[in-house]
Amino acid sequence: MADNQPTKTTNSDEIDLGQLLKMIGNGFNRIGDAFLRTFLYLKKNVIKLAALVVIGLLISYLLSSLVDKKLKTEVMIMPNFDSKDYVYDVIEEIQSNIRSRDSSFFENFSIDVADLEGFDLEIEPITDPEDAKEDVEQDLMYLELLQGFKEESFAVDIMRRVLTRKNIVAHRITFTYVNAQTGTELSKKILNYINTNEYFQEVKNAFRENAKMRIDQNTVLIGQIDNLISGYSQTMLQNKKESSGSIYLENESALNISSLLTLKNRFVKEIEEKKLELSEQKEVLSILNMGKTQQVRKPLFNNNFVLIPLSLVVLFFIVSFLIYLNKRASRLDVKNN
């Protein structure tokens, strides 16, 4: 009896393996049958599906011809005087008042609420987050290299310029509307409204006055340096002596030509920077580019020409599946009865 036990175990294992292979074969057969049934179902209903796609395209075309097309104007702007938070807040305020149709709010800048039908705006930074991250990493490496020259004036200027540049980011305001003429006018009025903030107007005026005063002072100092260098040159020509770089005036004061020229160059550079700032920062919101009116183009799967036909086809499959379930349920009901 003990000798027969291994034989029985082997036969049992062979039977189980055979059943497993048979189950796997049946599974593949069922998959094949399901694929063939699906193919036959699509073949049987191909005309209906094609008709639904055509009907969906016709509906999409009719809707697109009846509904006004959206237009937009993209404006590239630069917030000045640390006014980025203010610009975002005031745009959010305008968006809220557009939705609520607050006529008293828009009367402040001569806008009729009736013209706001289909009008909207939004703002976003132009800099790509990934590019901004790479720029920050590069700037940090650059600043680390400049640490060894931190006592030099050129290094201080470069570090100041890098740190200042990181705080200035261009933004894009997108105005969307349905009427090209009124949409453009509304966009300009809103931009003018943003620029009329009293606080930032005072900041702007103080900034421009300080910049002009600095330019005038530096211009006077440059003239004085030129006079000193000119007087020094005339003295050297009269005495016909070679200069070692400095002479003594009135027995006490030393004149260092190299330092004066360096100081003059610094004043000239600062005048150039201030003139550039005055040119760039004339308003709270500098308009870098006022785009032209263009049509809003929606992504493919947000377009009615795709959504409506696709919805009709999906609805057809759902109805067909419900009909199939109803037939199966009726058969089961007949068998039970």
Rank of each mutant, 00 (worst) to 15 (best):
D16Q: 13
L186N: 15
S12P: 00
F321A: 14
F267K: 12
T235W: 09
P299G: 06
T174E: 10
N302D: 08
L332W: 01
K204G: 04
I111S: 06
F119L: 11
L276C: 03
K48S: 14
G18S: 14
D89H: 13
A211E: 05
A211V: 02
N303E: 10
I257P: 00
M1Y: 04
S279W: 03
L221F: 08
D216M: 13
F119E: 07
T7S: 12
L163I: 06
S244T: 14
E122T: 12
D115M: 03
N45C: 03
N265P: 00
L71Q: 10
G291H: 04
A50M: 05
G32L: 04
L121T: 07
L263A: 12
L63E: 06
I287N: 07
I168A: 09
E273N: 10
L146T: 07
S311W: 02
L263G: 12
G183D: 03
N227E: 13
T9P: 00
F39G: 05
Y199Q: 04
Q234W: 02
V169Q: 14
S233L: 04
D139E: 04
D85K: 11
I323E: 06
N4A: 08
V75G: 07
Y142W: 07
S244I: 13
K22V: 07
G25Y: 10
Y88C: 01
I190M: 12
S96M: 07
S246P: 01
F200L: 05
S230N: 15
G291N: 05
N97V: 04
R161G: 10
A50R: 03
L40I: 14
P309L: 05
T127H: 10
Y86C: 01
K275L: 08
A114G: 09
N326P: 01
I59G: 02
D157I: 02
Y199R: 05
K44R: 15
Q5S: 11
L285E: 12
Y142T: 08
S233V: 10
L237E: 13
L36I: 07
I24G: 02
I194H: 01
E198P: 01
S244R: 11
E151D: 12
F175P: 00
Q217I: 09
V220F: 02
T184R: 09
K8Y: 14
T235S: 11
D226P: 09
K269D: 14
V203Q: 15
Q5K: 08
R331F: 12
D120T: 10
T127Y: 13
T196W: 02
E92I: 00
T182R: 11
D102W: 03
I47Q: 07
M76E: 12
L36Y: 07
R160M: 12
I91P: 11
F149T: 06
